[in-house]
Each structure stands twice: as structure tokens, then as C-alpha cells.
């Protein structure tokens, strides 16, 4: 036991106080486990480490020396270059992404919770079939929908507007699924009945009582949708030719694709831009882990 903690981080002792009772297992199997886990950590973290280290290098520094270690420190000037490139469009991209992801996730969460709640609490003939259709939509490969959507949006002049990305972002079949499970499990019929007897309308009951009970599920739905919109590339890339409407993913890939052409955006600027747009998401993930796991549990344990 003690030999393990020397090799690893100092926090080890606090992580699992119940370990005392474990019957002693062979040291070799412990080392094997730790070895496998450490190698995996290197595999998963090294590329991100490379991205962060590279964002501190000058353009020429990128091409010399060890890629996984520092070579001069130019992070601040890189960040300045990112925000200065193409008349400061990067800030606009970040703002666009925030609008798409924030607004899209908020509205899709509201609509999904309304739908999931209705399917769980007001069963009617055909509601089961309706739910199955929504579930089947989860199985449709999303990129396949992007092209027909583009062709349908184009004659009604929605292409190249905020709506082209916002409208598809407002729909979350997975959110309906989660909301239905959660509403069925956590909103008691007795409470709804009591509210009804008190003369509260169903809509008021939903917003004042049910929504509050369902709030942990709502946070999970919001997060999943927020990240999936933030990460989306194909749909906005197809819909938005106008650079000032694009989200940050489309913008950065646009910069990368100039790679090798005459006046391409310098590689260090592209890399720093990529590293910068990852930071908000990583913070979101680390601070709201609990909700990720609850969403995933309801997806897999039934």
C-alpha cells in the first residue's frame, strides 16, 4: 500500500478511506493496474498537453525542438494575434457560439421537458407510438439530415441566418427521452392531483411545481445539448457561408484549411485559437461532472 503512494500523487491517501479492510492483494497485480491506468492517462492527455504547449510557441518554434516541451513563451502574443486576425473575427465567433449553444440549449430543454412530461404524465392512445418515433430519431445519423435541411431552408431564405443553426438546435429527442424517464420517476401523481383540486391549471402546475421537481434532469439535458451545439460543425458549416455568423468550430477549421496556401493564417494562430475555444468547455465539464454522470446513468441503466 505505502509503496504505491510514494510513486503517485500526494492526494492518494485521501481518496479512499475504506481501503483498510481490503484483503492484501499481490503487489504485482496492483502495479499492473496502476501501469495500465497511467499509460492510458498519457495516451488521453498527451495530445491536449501538446495543444497547450504549442499555443505558447512562436510559428517558427513549432517546427523545431521537441513538440511535447516548451520552446520560448509566446502565449500572450499568440492570443493577441488570434484576436487581431481578420479584423478580430475570433471574438465574434465565440459570441456566435455562445448564442447558438446558450439559446438553443435553453429552448430545447424547455420544449423537451414539456414533451417528456406530457408523455409521462398524460398517457393517451398513441402516446407510446409517438415516444417510439422520437426515440427512433436518436438513431438517425445527424449529418444525413444536414443536406436536406439546407435544401429546404434555402428557398425560405433561412440559409445564412442565425435561424439556420438555431432551429435545428432547439430539438433534442434525447432530451425528451430523459425528461420522460425523470418525470415518470420523480413527479408524484398525488401532487398533480392535489394541485388540480386546488384549482391550478395544468400549465401553471407544470411551471410552478413539476419543472422544479425535474430540475436535475433539466440541467443534464441543457448540458448535453449545450455541448452538442458547441461542438457541432457540419450543420453550421453547410448553412453559414457568411463568416460573421459562423460559430468558432467552423471558423477555426476555415483557418486550418488555408494550410499551405499563399497568405494562410499562421499555424501558431490556428493552434492557439483551438486551445482557447477548448477552455470554456473543459471548465464546464470539470465543474458540472455530477450532472454528466446522472445523464449517462439514466441512458444506460433501465
Amino acid at each position: 500500500m505505502s509503496t504505491l503512494q510514494i510513486g503517485s500523487r500526494p492526494r492518494a491517501a485521501s481518496t479512499s478511506p475504506t481501503r483498510r479492510s481490503t484483503p492484501r492483494r499481490s503487489d504485482s497485480s496492483r502495479w499492473l493496474i496502476l501501469g495500465v491506468m497511467t499509460i492510458s492517462v498519457v495516451y488521453f492527455l498527451a495530445p491536449v498537453w501538446w495543444l497547450l504547449v504549442s499555443s505558447t510557441k512562436s510559428d517558427s518554434g513549432l517546427f523545431s525542438g521537441n513538440g511535447f516541451w516548451f520552446n520560448g513563451f509566446h502565449l500572450w502574443s499568440n492570443i493577441r494575434s488570434v484576436f487581431a486576425q481578420d479584423n478580430g473575427i475570433y471574438a465574434r465567433w465565440l459570441l456566435n457560439t455562445l448564442v447558438y449553444a446558450g439559446l438553443g440549449a435553453a429552448l430545447s430543454t424547455l420544449f423537451a421537458s414539456l414533451a417528456g412530461y406530457a408523455l409521462a404524465k398524460f398517457p393517451f392512445r398513441g402516446s407510446g407510438a409517438l415516444f417510439n418515433i422520437v426515440l427512433a430519431a436518436v438513431l438517425v445519423p445527424q449529418p444525413l439530415l444536414a443536406i436536406p435541411l439546407y435544401l429546404l431552408f434555402s428557398p425560405v431564405h433561412l440559409v445564412n441566418t442565425y435561424w439556420a443553426v438555431l432551429i435545428p438546435s432547439m430539438v433534442s429527442p434525447f432530451g425528451v427521452y430523459l425528461a420522460r424517464i425523470y418525470a415518470a420517476a420523480s413527479v408524484p401523481d398525488e401532487v398533480l392531483e392535489a394541485a388540480r383540486l386546488d384549482g391550478s391549471g395544468e400549465v401553471r402546475t407544470f411551471f410552478q411545481i413539476s419543472l422544479r421537481v425535474m430540475s436535475p434532469a433539466l440541467v443534464t439535458i441543457f448540458l448535453f445539448q449545450f455541448v452538442s451545439i458547441w461542438s457541432n460543425y457540419l450543420l453550421p458549416a453547410l448553412m453559414l457561408a457568411n463568416e460573421s455568423l459562423q460559430p468558432v468550430t467552423v471558423g477555426i477549421v476555415g483557418w486550418q484549411q488555408q494550410h499551405g496556401s499563399g497568405n494562410a493564417v499562421p499555424t501558431n494562430v490556428v493552434i492557439t485559437a483551438a486551445a482557447l475555444c477548448v477552455v470554456p468547455l473543459v471548465i464546464l465539464f470539470l465543474s458540472l461532472q455530477r450532472f454528466w454522470r446522472s445523464g449517462m446513468t439514466s441512458g444506460s441503466v433501465k
Binding site: F44, L45, P47, V48, V270, A274, L281, L284, F285, L286
Partner: peptide, 17 residues
């Protein structure tokens, strides 16, 4: 957290990296 971190990167940014 370390294993989950790659998922926090937008797919296309991970690909670009």
C-alpha cells in the same frame, strides 16, 4: 477526469489537433 477530458473537446477541434 483524465479519461473523460477528450470528450470535452469539440469533435472537430480534436480532429484538427
Amino acid at each position: 477526469l483524465a479519461y473523460f477530458l477528450p470528450y470535452a473537446l469539440p469533435g472537430v477541434v480534436g480532429s484538427l489537433m
